[in-house]
Design a protein around this nucleic acid. Structure first.
Lengths: 202, 202
DNA sequence: GAGTGTTTAAAATATAGTTTAAAACAATAT
DNA sequence: ATATTGTTTTAAACTATATTTTAAACACTC
């Protein structure tokens, strides 16, 4: 840990951790200040309010975690390779930060009014190009005709949902954090197969 | 005697709505009182505390919404019919109360410590009997050998996740609430097919 | 050492959940 | 019909904590 991180960054980091762990509403600015080792009022000095700080953190998290995924969707790989890459990359991202999904879920539920936030997560979603590719390959006959919106929802559901219910899965199957990661790792191939098999006629 | 049942129920109902809509932590007891049209102190009179009220509501919601699903899983249908019934029943329940999933997600994230709550949701999960059935039919050769825990996660993910991101789906595809219901209705068959097809060799 | 940006301490607001004490009510026994 | 009792409701107070604002202290640069 770099020891002279500037104060703004310390606040930002501490808040990020706390928001993800305990949820925005159960994190007080005192918690943030004390975790960052700074005075209470500094949060206000750097980010006018808690809500503002939250916005900054949220925007940052979305940017950090979508770039790679969108690049894959927009690339020129064929569908099969693309799905495979997307699933792997997405699961890798989430494995290295298992709280990302519950955090986003909470935000969707929490700030339905704030369309802006919605739009940002929404971009995690399929691009036009990807949808078109599914339609095209359906017409060409390389794959079964598939509704892109259902396909996309399937894919995201299968990838992300296990992280949303991670505590339940771990509890029920008596898994450690490592066990869970193993389980999730298995899902890379499992989900890819499930999705691709469904696209093929048979 | 009739009147007090009324008040208690009014509090219970108002709180249920608010908790599901805005989340537990963003709902104040004053909100509840005003929505229920009762005095602030009555909440404490009937349910000792907000957390207590929350527990009561939560327990009730779980009970209400799992009974039918567990009955299906424990029934003597063959696997194919069972999956079909489960998917349909689950989607019907969620369609008639689209906030159920986000609410449960929030709880999982919110009260990871409270094991009891975990266990309750956990029972939404596959029963032993169902898992065994998957293993058995795999051995018999009626279906491909399938890992029950992955299968179950797949099934729940595909059913419930769309509700967790409902605002996003609606926003992105410019859907009204009705459109969304239609989309979800389509998923009954879609998800069933996806799951069943994957269990067959081909 | 004046001026700048940064940090601290403390006061002022605001809102949360909970508790109290007494009034209003309903049912029943006198 | 009235007094007694237990239940339900009310308004206000209490306690705790969250958030925002203000002003002063510090430290660095020019």
């Amino acid at each position: 840990m770099a020891k002279n991180k500037n104060t703004e960054q310390k606040i930002f980091d501490a808040a990020t951790e706390l928001f993800m762990e305990k949820g925005v509403d159960r994190t007080s600015v005192r918690d943030i200040a004390s975790k960052a080792g700074i005075n209470l009022a500094l949060m206000n000095y750097y980010f006018r309010s808690k809500e503002n700080l939250f916005d900054a953190i949220f925007t940052n998290l979305v940017k950090e975690n979508t770039r790679e995924l969108l690049k894959i969707l927009d690339s020129d790989m064929d569908l099969e390779e693309k799905v495979q890459n997307y699933v792997n990359a997405y699961i890798d991202i989430l494995t290295s930060n298992p709280l990302l999904v519950p955090f986003f879920m909470a935000i969707i539920h929490r700030s339905q009014d704030k369309i802006t936030k919605m739009k940002m997560i929404s971009n995690l979603y399929g691009t036009e190009k990807f949808s078109q590719q599914i339609v095209d390959e359906g017409k060409k006959g390389t794959i079964r005709r598939t509704d892109p919106s259902h396909f996309f929802v399937d894919m995201i559901s299968l990838i992300t949902f296990p992280f949303a219910i991670r505590p339940l899965i771990m509890d029920r199957n008596e898994m450690s954090a490592e066990d869970f990661n193993l389980f999730i790792h298995e899902r890379k191939e499992h989900v890819t197969n499930l999705l691709l098999k469904n696209m093929k006629d048979c």
